[in-house]
Design a protein around this nucleic acid. Structure first.
Length: 448
RNA sequence: GGAGAGAUGGCCGAGUGGUCGAAGGCGCACCCCUGCUAAGGGUGUAUACGUCAAAAGCGUAUCGAGGGUUCAAAUCCCUCUCUCUCCGCCA
């Protein structure tokens, strides 16, 4: 969420910066509703102040044993106007809030111009794509030839965009997770966390997936009151004051560990001494992939369910861009140790995610596709998520709570890392070499 | 699943309708005293929002959440959530 002050005091400038993302904001409408809000809020608060003053006077009069009936009479006349003003204010604020929650983050100045991925800028490459003396196969062929990867049985069990892996391949997949977690905890100073895979809507609002991107999520319906309880409540004493309605307690499968992990600090004021907070977390991720029909339908690149090791940092604002560089480096280190060629690109303004102020994508070389494919996305959200979730820290310089900055990045997407290994380490005989860094995690196995 | 008890400021804890944003304590900050530790004394110590160019000031809201009663709710009523204890069940 953007600072509402920017939309009030610096609207034109803010809208200009947002235009870089290719979005337009109806400034006239926004300014109009904001003007309305101001008028109604001032009015409502005046009425409240008036009522409070009279109530206080009644209290004082009664304490002294004086007759307060006249003031009580006056006070009671305020009620109706106040109720009306408050209702109007609430309506306006809801409308305003809906607009503001739908506005993406402002791109950082260093973010390049561009409307889509063609505007992204490569910042560095690492490693040389291997020269094959045979035509390299894609990971589907490699995996199926080994008899260890099965999309058909997954489709029978669940449907499209799922996979079943077996034997040494399943083990290699698991080994990657251990390898990544070990590196980030041992060498990069992250604290491992285990978190829920089902989260509530408040958490998703905090990181920015809701309200705008519900279609991308798997929702698990859940209501809190059953008919029996509701009936009992209705038969209770104060029938007229009972407001029984089913409360939607639906949960969502996490699309990334970013959601539960970043929300660890929702409504928290972090002690400056504990900063920066650095968490690493392995979870499965679930994405509906609505709107990606026909895209990456083959193989493990785009699945409804995949494993990911996620890096999350909560830092003081002035450190966040240095932290983004460091975090990106931590993700790159995995690929370097696995000897997988990759490149890093800065996403242009039009290609960035909703909540991000700046994003680096790491793209790994896939011989089967003869191109680089995203394997990690590392972003600085500045205070955009922090404002939504009220994640703060106490700034020692001001001793006041201030919004923290949040960052995250994949370190790495496990399924795609496995894909990269299968494609880059394949042999002509169909076997796949195990990268030496991984061998300790698979009992010394050299190939599968 | 059944029975019960709770939820108040950074922490502990008082407060059952009215000058309560909330006593007291702890902690923290600053000051005083004290020849440097300990002890003692004083002062201060929530957050958000609005108004304002900004600050000050003023106003509004917040005692788990939502709703209700009332001129007035931390306090009364209803619903929900969460925590704890006991029983049952369970990986």
């Amino acid at each position: 969420m953007l600072d509402p002050k920017l939309l009030r005091a610096d609207l034109d400038n803010t809208v200009r910066k947002l235009a870089r993302r290719g979005i337009t904001v109806d400034t006239a409408a926004l300014a109009a509703i904001e003007e309305q809000r101001k008028r109604v809020q001032v009015h409502a608060e005046q009425l409240q102040a008036e009522r409070n003053a009279k109530s206080k006077a009644i209290g004082m009069a009664k304490a002294k044993g004086e007759d307060a009936s006249k003031v009580m009479q006056e006070a009671s006349t305020i009620g109706a106007a106040l109720t009306q003003a408050q209702a109007e204010l609430e309506r306006i604020q809801t409308a305003l809030n809906d607009v503001v929650l739908g506005i993406p983050n402002i791109p950082h100045e260093s973010v390049p111009e561009g409307h889509d991925e063609r505007g992204n800028i490569e910042v560095r490459r690492w490693g040389e794509p291997r020269k094959f003396d045979f035509t390299p196969k894609d990971h589907v062929e490699v995996g199926e030839r080994l008899g260890l990867m099965d999309f058909e049985v997954a489709a029978k069990i669940s449907g499209a965009r799922f996979v079943v892996m077996k034997g040494t391949l399943a083990r290699l997949h698991r080994a990657l997770i251990q390898f990544m977690l070990d590196l980030h905890t041992r060498d990069h100073g992250y604290v491992e966390v285990y978190v829920p895979y089902l989260v509530n809507s408040a958490s998703l609002r905090g990181t920015g997936q809701l309200p705008k991107f519900e279609a991308d999520l798997f929702k698990v319906p859940h209501e809190s009151i059953d008919d029996e309880v509701a009936l009992k409540a209705l038969q209770g004493k104060d029938n007229d004051s009972v407001a029984v309605k089913k409360i939607d307690r639906s949960l969502y499968l996490i699309p990334t560990a970013e959601v539960p992990v970043t929300n660890l600090v929702r409504d928290v004021i972090v002690d400056a001494k504990e900063m920066p907070l650095k968490f690493v977390c392995h979870t499965p991720c679930f994405r509906s992939e609505a709107g990606s029909y026909g895209k990456d339908t083959r193989g493990m690149i785009r699945q409804h369910q995949f494993e990911k090791v996620e890096l999350v940092q909560i830092v003081p604002p002035r450190d966040s861009y240095a932290a983004l560089e460091a975090l990106t480096g931590h993700a790159e280190k995995i690929l370097q140790l696995l000897q997988l060629p990759y490149r890093v690109v800065t996403l242009c303004a039009g290609d960035m995610g909703f909540s991000a102020a700046k994003t680096y994508d790491i793209e790994v070389w896939l011989p089967g596709q003869n191109r680089y494919r995203e394997i990690s996305s590392c972003s600085n959200f500045e205070d955009f998520q922090a404002r939504r979730m009220q994640a703060r820290w106490r700034n020692p310089e001001t001793s006041k709570p201030e919004l923290a900055h949040t960052l995250n990045g994949s370190g790495l997407a496990v399924g795609r890392t496995l894909v990269a290994i299968l494609e880059n380490y394949q042999q002509q005989d169909g076997r796949v070499q195990v990268p030496s860094a991984l061998r300790p995690y698979v009992g010394g196995l050299e190939s599968i």
